[in-house]
Nucleic acid binder design. Structure first.
Length: 871
RNA sequence: GGGAGCUUAGCUCAGUUGGGAGAGCAACUGCCCUACAAGCAGUGGGUCACAGGUUCGAGCCCUGUAGCUCCCACCA
């Protein structure tokens, strides 16, 4: 093994080897319990970013863990066609070449889009591999694959037949730049500084003016009424009369509607059913005409009269000017209001009436809400359930049609002769109603999330009743960011229930955003994104993975920092070097099973610690507490194994006694091998690379069983006793620092006989780690001579003669401080034990522990007092 | 308007059934002891935002307050 950890030298090689061995493949095995994770498919437009890195790492940890535990673990990867996002990018690219969608035509455009897909979908797959993702690549699915298309059509037609999909003229969000409808979830709102224009509408007959206020004056061409509140006495006499729409000059009625809030503005609202969701509802209630005034590209249409063809904002300017010169503009006030933007291109969206396809949500939402309420699905952390409920309980019908070409084309045909609308799972060329060949397929495609919603089962062969579907569905855990609860999680849940009659997964593990060092969102526009691949190149995939998990609580955002990755890389290096030490010493040694070794107290201590770690890590991983699992392993590996156990065992390794040597090596190998297995799900590369160098290695660590807690190896009492030895060592080290004694200088230890046997057994360890040359057991302090520093420990009292280094006054002060400490401890423990409430209500275990502490501290106080007196 | 999260050491953050405040980094002191200076040993540093409450016992549970962040809804 190389002297320093150099991940670049083995990561790719190991990944190829895992692939060649078929370690990632999940094949139905009825002797095993399935464990299924569906990868949230990254967009084909995308590059791997830190968010992906975290998402994939978490999934990989869970999947590798379960696979090692003996489950038939399937992690199914895929990529998403990302209808709008991809189409926008392709159009941009075409624009640079002077091309447009129209010039290429549908066929030509789609050809280009598929070329794009072939070029870029592979890129992200390669990037995922760099991270170590152990997914079954043989099942890699693209959301526009044949099998997904079949699932989409099946679902669409079924919902259509159940009347849960319908087509209608409704208010939708329109992106004038992408020229498509959007769902409510795809609109992002932000506060903007706008204006409130107050305009006078003159009542029919003249003389009386109604003042209305609007933030979008250009929509006035679509006004088909003004509304006042039915209870508003100021305007009661005008209800049923008409007002003159300025500029246009046409008459529109005054209607009474609750929508008009008498307290807000003047209490009079202009009603523009075609361009405002609320107005649309008012229009339905009063049977008002719906007049659209805008084209798909955000310019004004013929209904805007002389402003036809103008951009919406230019038109706004001109309308305001015209109103002003006509004396109809009362005033203009600044107004902060929230404006919707397209989540892909960030253009301001226009609410407008358009004929679109919708999924009817009320019936679908109910069981999806229940599934979470009754814990058929658990959200981790639980708080995200509230967000989910809130959205699901208020969800409106889902607009699923998009005026794009890249995506699943809506499987509906219209007959030009009999006027039928036919939803069909297969392409048709004749109208099944009238036999006419004059039919045409709907021009639009489906929302990309329509196919994503089917991901948990479309990938397994739905609608066919495949063996995989039966075995691997429902999935076990979905890992994803909280930012796509609405887009994806919610829709998968109701889709699974509706089409599979079973929830798609049991747990949803949410993670937060990876932010930059200043806590800002990483974004292209800020240019503060960090490329995971560069980090991997520099520090290794394991270090990156570890840094994305350690110290992160589920669902919380985290800040990325190079310093943290570096610290994690150092940890990998630590593991590397400790392993190198073990392997070097194992050369020529005979590795024996633990049962054939006479274990030393230190051996029992580390084996005991290992058992606790196995138990705690398993528990943490099962609860998805990945950050905690990392911490436990970090502490065990670095502190217990490296700083203590390896140092303890060094003298044994140099011993003449071959049996002892072999024993020590065997324990080293045993503990290291187990630790590597425990770490493997988190740091797959370094652990396997090391594993393959172990004398006990057998193939790859990836397919080995995850360690199990063994109560016989817990050695609780031995471990506790050994902790007393560690106290002695720590005390000596601390004393040396206190009196400025170089650590290399060997001291003579005088120790009381309280725990003579235990100390004698561990004498070598103490001498080595404490830097001592000799231990002498004494029964009175005087035997330690003058100038000895005293340390009172629970298991003994320690005297360390320091010669001229000791300052008597300082020593007194030090002991006095220790006395104060111990006295405070006694007061604390005593206080607790005097408390009747504590005695009667606290668990017995705690009360007993408190008694033991009290006794221990009282004994220590006696010793300290005695020592002070002797000074 | 409704809801959520955060506030713990100088910095970044853990702390999940309530039972003596932790890590990493930074700081300070001393060490090249043949696995590792990407290292070792030791030290200092916190009224756990604030105010109440429940409890024998609260960083953790409840109520309220403040600051920061986010989500949803409304916004003529």
């Amino acid at each position: 093994m190389e002297k320093t950890y150099n991940p670049a030298s083995f990561e790719d090689r190991l990944y190829r080897d895992w692939e060649e061995r078929g370690c990632f493949k999940a094949v139905r095995d009825d002797d095993k319990i399935p464990f299924t994770v569906m990868m949230p498919p990254p967009n084909i437009t995308g590059q791997l970013h830190m968010g992906h890195a975290m998402d994939e790492t978490m999934q990989d940890v869970v999947v590798r863990f379960k696979r090692m535990q003996g489950y038939c673990a399937l992690w199914l990867p895929g990529t998403d066609h990302a209808a709008i996002a991809t189409e926008v990018k392709i159009v941009e690219q075409m624009k640079k070449e002077g091309l447009s969608k129209e010039s290429l035509g549908r066929e030509g455009f789609l050809k280009r889009a598929w070329e794009w897909k072939d070029k870029y979908a592979g890129r992200i797959v390669e990037q995922l591999k760099k991270l170590g993702s152990s997914c079954d690549w043989s099942r890699l699915t693209f959301t526009m694959d044949e099998k997904c298309s079949r699932a989409v059509r099946e679902v669409f037609v079924n919902l259509f037949n159940k009347k849960l999909i319908y087509r209608g003229n409704r208010i939708i969000n329109w992106c004038p730049a992408c020229k498509t409808a959007l769902s409510d979830a795809e609109v992002e709102y932000s506060e903007e500084n706008g204006h409130f224009w107050h305009i006078k509408y003159e009542a029919e007959g003249g003389g009386v003016f109604l003042e209305i206020a609007t933030t979008r004056p250009e929509t006035m061409f679509g006004d088909t009424a003004v509304a006042v509140n039915p209870g508003d006495k100021r305007y009661a006499h005008l209800i049923g009369k008409n007002v003159v729409l300025p500029i246009v000059g046409k008459l529109i009625p005054v209607v009474a509607d609750e929508h008009a809030d008498p307290e807000f503005g003047t209490g009079v609202v202009k009603i523009t059913p075609a361009h405002d969701p609320n107005d649309f509802e008012v229009g339905l209630r009063h049977n008002l005409p719906v007049v659209r005034v805008m084209n798909d590209d955000g310019t004004m249409n013929a209904n805007a009269g002389k402003y036809e063809g103008l951009d919406r904002y230019e038109c706004r300017k001109r309308v305001v000017e015209e109103l002003k010169s006509a004396g109809l503009l009362v005033n203009v006030k600044p107004q902060v209001h929230s404006v919707g933007h397209c989540y892909r291109c960030h253009s301001t969206v226009e609410p407008l009436v358009s004929k679109q396809w919708f999924v009817k949500m009320d019936k679908l939402a109910r069981p999806a809400i229940d599934a979470v309420t009754y814990k058929k699905i658990s959200f981790v952390p639980e708080r995200f359930a509230k967000i989910y409920y809130n959205w699901m309980e208020n969800v409106k019908d889902w607009c699923i049609s998009r005026q794009l070409w890249w995506g699943h084309r809506i499987p509906v045909w219209y007959c030009g002769d009999c006027g039928s609308t036919i939803a069909s799972k297969v392409d048709i060329t004749v109208c099944p109603r009238c036999g006419s060949g004059n039919i045409a397929q709907d021009e639009d495609v489906l929302d990309t999330w329509f196919s994503s919603a089917l991901w948990p089962f479309s990938t397994l062969g739905f609608p066919e009743d495949t063996s995989d579907l039966e075995y691997f569905y429902p999935g076990d855990v979905l890992v994803t960011g909280y930012d796509i609860i609405f887009f994806w999680v919610a829709r998968m849940i109701f889709s699974g229930i509706e089409h599979m009659r079973a929830v798609p997964f049991r747990d949803v593990l949410f993670h937060g955003l990876v932010r930059d060092e200043q806590g800002r969102k990483m974004s292209k526009s800020l240019g503060n994104g960090i490329d995971p691949l560069e980090v991997i190149e520099k520090y290794g995939a394991d270090a990156l993975r570890f840094s994305l998990l350690q110290g992160v609580a589920p669902g919380n955002d985290m800040r990325y920092s190079d310093a943290k990755v570096e610290a994690c890389r150092n940890f990998m290096n630590k593991i590397w070097n400790a392993s190198r030490f073990v392997i070097m010493n194992a050369e020529g040694a005979e590795i024996k099973p633990l049962s054939e070794i006479k274990l030393s107290p230190a051996d029992k201590w580390i084996i005991s610690r290992l058992q606790s770690v196995i138990r705690d890590v398993t528990l943490a991983l099962n609860k998805f507490e990945l950050g905690i699992a990392c911490q436990i392993l970090y502490d065990f590996m670095w502190s217990d194994f490296c700083d203590w156990y390896i140092e303890l065992v060094k003298p044994v390794l140099r011993s003449e006694d071959a049996a002892k040597r072999n024993g020590a090596v065997s324990v080293l190998i045993f503990v290291l091998e187990n630790a590597l297995k425990l770490l493997h799900p988190i740091a797959p590369f370094v652990t396997d690379e090391i594993y393959r160098n172990l004398p006990t290695a057998d193939g790859t660590i990836m397919t080995k069983e995850f360690p199990r807690y063994n109560a016989k190896l817990a050695y609780k009492k031995d471990a506790q006793a050994f902790a007393g030895i560690m106290d002695i060592i720590k005390a000596v080290r601390a004393v040396k620092t206190e009196v400025d004694c170089p650590p290399s200088k060997k001291v003579h230890l005088y120790i009381t006989t309280d725990s003579k046997r235990l100390i004698t057994v561990n004498e070598d360890s103490i001498l080595k780690l404490a830097g001592a040359k000799e231990i002498t057991f004494i029964t009175s302090a005087a035997e330690a001579g003058e100038n000895a520093v005293t340390k009172v420990l629970p298991i003994c009292t320690l005297y360390i003669p320091m010669g001229e280094l000791v300052d008597l006054e300082k020593e007194k002060a030090r002991l006095t401080a220790e006395l104060e400490n111990v006295t405070a401890e006694i007061a604390r423990a005593d206080g607790k034990l005097q408390n009747q409430g504590f005695l009667s209500k606290a668990p017995k275990k705690l009360v007993d522990a408190e008694h033991a502490k009290l006794e221990k501290f009282i004994a220590m106080r006696e010793k300290i007092l005695k020592q002070l007196k002797s000074l």
